[in-house]
Amino acid sequence: MSALPDPLRLHRCMLLIRAFEEQVRRLAAAGLVPGLVHLCTGQEAVAAGAIVQLGPEDRIASHHRGHGHCLARGADPRRLMAEILGRAPGLSGGRGGSMHVYDAASGNLGTNGIVGGAVPLATGAALAAQRQGSGGIAVAFFGDGALNQGLVSECMNMAAVWRLPVLFLCEHNGYGEFTASADVTAGPSLLARGAVFGMPAEEVDGMDALAVQQAVAGAAARARGGEGPSFLLCHTWRFSGHHAGDRQDYKDDEETRRWRARDPIPRLAAHLRATGLADDPALAAMEAKAERIAADAAAFARAAPEPEPAALHQHLFA
């Protein structure tokens, strides 16, 4: 892949996700996105920081707020955007949409419309990797809401019993839809949700791409070394609310101000400047490039044809 040092790759990836989501927001506002769409703006550092550590033999499984994971993993932005608009050249032929993007070519077992539904898929990918001796690992991305699904705890238990090479990566953004996580989640420590199964559990600043990268690097090394699963609780925040167009009346201004100030993109930019990895013109050029790619994806998707009616019955069975 890239010969650039990791921090620049991370930054490029986050910029692309941010620019892509902005295009999705505009398309949704223009009424071009069928159904609801969930943006991951604000959570870019988690997707970028985690996925930059993975290789081609690894697998990810994502969730309803998953465009960032798909892009970080290498999905073609044009085909991803076309899928979000339900168009024929989309990654799923326009029948899946934002919550059902699959990309076998990049080892992506899909975004998912079932909260918690992708966690067993990643765990199963880890079982397959272990039984096949492929050396691969799997990352299950899920939200704080999914942490209350029994299925997720079941998977953590089995992954620990079988020492599966899987990372349980919770993107804790404080809300499930319009309900604060704290109002529906018991216990003094969410880390205990992983620790209780005897796996390493770590709290991570999900607004710091380098911190995510470091935590994932450690967990991935353990998984590859046969030491089994880890639980990473990444604290982050949804800048755009639950879905594109969410008015977010349930958040207070002080909370918004506090989290906006922790935006992962300027934060990594400051690091790049301070370490001499990039100067302002270089950063501006990276941003402009990301915007070009995202605008091109949006233009491609808008111009893309709808599926043919005959596609209705295709691929029901393999």
């Binding site: 067993p120 898929l121 199963g124 990918a125 079982l127 397959a128 299925l151 089995m158």
Partner: peptide
């Protein structure tokens, strides 16, 4: 390794089987 006793967690264990089936098992 090939005859796998699962815990009594049907939903999770079957979901794991689905994921494994997507990856070559």
């Amino acid at each position: 390794a090939r005859v796998i006793d699962t815990p009594i967690s049907e939903a999770g264990a079957f979901g794991i089987a689905v994921g494994a089936s997507m990856c070559g098992l």
